[in-house]
């Protein structure tokens, strides 16, 4: 016996919403999903008319849904935004090629201009210029005012939990903010229109809309620390779906006592750019390219930063982990 849509009471329901428990048909789901993102954008005043907004596009589900919804809402509600897709080519053969191919198809499907910034392109610049984040650099080239990214409610709940588990109070305070203002003249403001959208709904939206996206290998091994946190949240969600929103809400409303000492945001030991690690991302990336270890710029390897700073050689085991891999 098929369940009817609780909204229009006519069509067959195709999903149970994790946020509300409502049963919705395909069309009602599309409307509700898009309207909630519109509400997020309007109530947090994420954009101003006339702005050029780059959508950080990886070809994955979140950024693909984001690009689609931003395009739809920009037209439906006349945001007056100049939208474009912005992608970073890490220059590594393997899965990245497929994800870039997906982004290229998205460009045609959504009729949005696409700019792919390659590390090579950055590489040709001066040392000083390289030390900025790739997306920011690319966006600067295009006179973009803002970057929006596909972080969803599940991602943010996970980040809250991870910061609690790491005792990282400074990040815990910052991690749930829906937008960041410009962090210096070369860092663009960023925002997250999908902040309150559940991963389940993003995936089902992409599925029912037949959006073209690319899935990478499992990003978290279930036994890694972050993998445990993710699995824990998913387990909680399967018992009580509102757990995701509850964690996010807790993160947003935590206030930190004045007496809590905040770590001072440090600077990169090589170039002086703001960095919470010994070396900034760009310097690590450059170092990786120079040493023929492309993965250095991708994963989290801050334990190696001291070695890199003092120009010490890496051990064989460390090098093996950072070589271009067979995907």
């Amino acid at each position: 016996m098929p369940i009817q849509c609780s909204k229009c009471t006519e069509q067959r329901a195709v999903l149970k919403r994790p946020k509300t428990g409502q049963s919705l048909c395909k069309e009602c789901f599309f409307i509700v999903f898009e309207e909630e993102i519109h509400h997020t954008i309007v109530s947090a005043q994420l954009f101003k008319p006339g702005e050029t907004v780059a959508i950080g596009a990886s070809g994955g589900k979140d950024s693909t849904v984001l690009a689609h919804v931003m395009k739809v809402l920009n037209e439906r509600y006349k945001y007056g935004l100049n939208l474009m897709l912005l992608s970073v080519d890490e220059g590594i053969t393997g899965y990245r090629d497929d994800s870039l191919e997906t982004v290229k198809r998205n460009q045609e499907q959504y009729d949005l201009p696409l700019k792919i910034v390659s590390y090579e392109e950055l590489y040709g610049w001066t040392m000083d210029a390289i030390v900025k984040q790739a997306l920011d650099r690319g966006a600067k080239l295009l006179n973009v005012d803002k970057i929006c990214t596909g972080h969803n409610a599940d991602d943010l709940a996970e980040t809250v939990l991870m910061n609690v588990l790491r005792g990282d109070i400074a990040r815990l305070r910052r991690c749930t903010s829906i937008s960041t203002s410009s962090g210096g003249e070369d860092v663009l403001p960023r925002c997250k229109p999908l902040k309150y959208a559940y991963e389940k709904e993003i995936v089902l939206y992409a599925y029912f809309k037949k959006l073209d996206y690319f899935s990478t290998e499992c990003i978290y091994s279930p036994n890694a620390y972050r993998g445990h946190a993710r699995a824990f949240l998913k387990d909680l969600e399967s018992v009580r779906p509102s757990a995701i929103m509850a964690v996010l809400h807790s993160g947003e409303n935590l206030s930190i006592k004045e007496s809590v000492k905040m770590p001072v945001q440090g600077t990169c030991g090589r170039c002086g750019y703001i960095s919470s690690q010994a070396l900034c991302k760009a310097c690590v990336l450059l170092e990786g390219l120079n040493r023929g270890l492309p993965k250095l710029g991708i994963g989290k390897h801050h334990r190696l930063h001291e070695k890199l700073l003092s120009q010490q050689p890496l051990s064989n085991a460390e090098e093996r982990k950072l070589k271009a891999v067979d995907f």
């Binding site: 098929p2 369940i3 329901a13 999903l15 149970k16 991963e199 993710r230 699995a231 998913k234």
Partner: peptide, 17 residues
Amino acid sequence: VRPGILVLINDADWELM
């Protein structure tokens, strides 16, 4: 199924079924 894997039966969320 492992939490985080969505299941659809005849294109409807199995949580409805």
